[in-house]
Amino acid sequence: MRIGVPKEIKNHEYRIGLTPAGVRELVGHGHSVMVQRDGGRAIGLTDDLYERAGAEIVETPEEIFERAEMIIKVKEPQPDECRMLREGQVLYTYLHLAPDPEQTRLLVESGCTAIAYETVTDDRGGLPLLAPMSEVAGRMSIQAGAHALERAQGGSGVLMGGVPGVRPAEVMILGGGVVGLNAARMAMGMGADVTIFDRSLPRLKYIDELYGDRLNTLYSTEEAIDQHLATVDLVIGAVLIPGASAPKLIRREQLAIMEPGSVLVDVAIDQGGCFETSRATTHQAPTYEVDGIIHYCVANMPGAVARTSTFALTNATLACAIQLANKGAARAMLEDVHLLRGLNVHRGQVTYEAVARDLGYDYVPAAEALSD
């Protein structure tokens, strides 16, 4: 199979879809890989490294999209990239379609086969291709939140760990999944007072058994959230419903409960955000203020630590990429139910139920669409 890896074009996105090691593995399986020139240069992955791994260096994204049978990316295709996709071509990347009607429309119109990292599953019910970026984003959320709390950034001027005689920051984490747990680890490590909210009692029990009295766990209700907003310094939005738009857990009127200069970090912004006042921002301009509350809503948070993120992502996505290349996309997905769940769009049909429901498309089950 001919595989293409274009340079990412989203604002301040320095990750790349494959490391040289990933290229070497695919070439070893008999496939050809094209990498756009300087695609990984910003993170020290030079064209020479890719060539030594067996890749062909290609000058333009147009050539990659024209020649490749499968496109491997990191972020969702931008409109110009969507228009280069064609029927029968496989797109393998993060998509986050539910809050993005334009991208969904363009992918449907292209006729391509679009496989989303974030909806591929595993035997334990996890999301193994999303997990590494969730780990990165969870840890980064505390780093970003601590910076936003600085007075010079518009925050209240609270130090995460406090000092002897002065209270530490209070951190509220909405969601006890991979993002939430990694955020909690970082916040506790910085000495903050941490509370995780979740609606899964088994998950809350697991977190409690894991960390004991080092953090607090609370069943998530509107009342419990309201009570904590009055004293909290930093809120991390870490809620995920696979493939669907994130629920809005904090409404604009609730911002009035919070102290001015408090910070909201919305890690769920890729899925539309879990705060009513969230809107996607970039690393170039990461924050904005609403009613005295600082919002950090960068839609590609792991892109800030692009080298770590690229290696973690290839580690997670490579095995499925090899399956898709070795067997062809249709056969690979029909033989692997977990990979099948990654199919979101195929030949003009929306094949992921939550996306179809949220955006008003007719839903066609993935296996049925591939069998036509």
Rank of each mutant, 00 (worst) to 15 (best):
H12P: 07
I72F: 01
G22V: 04
E253K: 03
L49T: 02
I142N: 02
Y117C: 02
A184K: 09
P128C: 13
P79G: 04
E56C: 03
P164N: 12
K248S: 06
F65M: 09
V364P: 08
M301A: 07
L181M: 15
L249S: 02
I64S: 08
E222N: 14
L127I: 06
D336P: 06
A230F: 13
E222T: 14
V305H: 02
D358L: 05
E56R: 13
Y361D: 10
P79I: 09
L218E: 13
R252Q: 11
L49N: 02
D122Q: 11
L313V: 03
L149Q: 00
H295W: 14
F275E: 02
I250Y: 05
A131M: 01
L149P: 11
P164C: 11
R124T: 13
I142K: 07
V267A: 15
V90Q: 02
G28L: 05
L359K: 12
A256C: 01
T104R: 14
G4F: 03
E66A: 14
E276V: 13
V232Q: 07
A148L: 10
I241W: 01
L107Y: 09
R139N: 13
G237C: 08
L91N: 08
V136K: 03
G273E: 11
F311G: 06
L264C: 12
E223C: 11
E253T: 01
A137G: 07
A280R: 08
Q103Y: 03
P20K: 10
R357W: 09
K75L: 14
A280K: 04
Y296A: 11
I293C: 04
V108I: 11
G348E: 03
D336E: 10
D372S: 15
T60S: 13
I207T: 05
V74W: 07
L324M: 09
A55E: 00
R15Y: 12
V364Q: 09
V178F: 07
N300P: 09
G189F: 08
R252Y: 03
P132E: 04
L201D: 00
L229C: 12
L49M: 15
P6R: 09
Q143M: 10
D362G: 12
H96L: 00
A316N: 09
D193I: 02
E222F: 15
F197R: 00
A169T: 00
E87L: 06
I64R: 06
G17Q: 00
V158W: 11
Q103G: 12
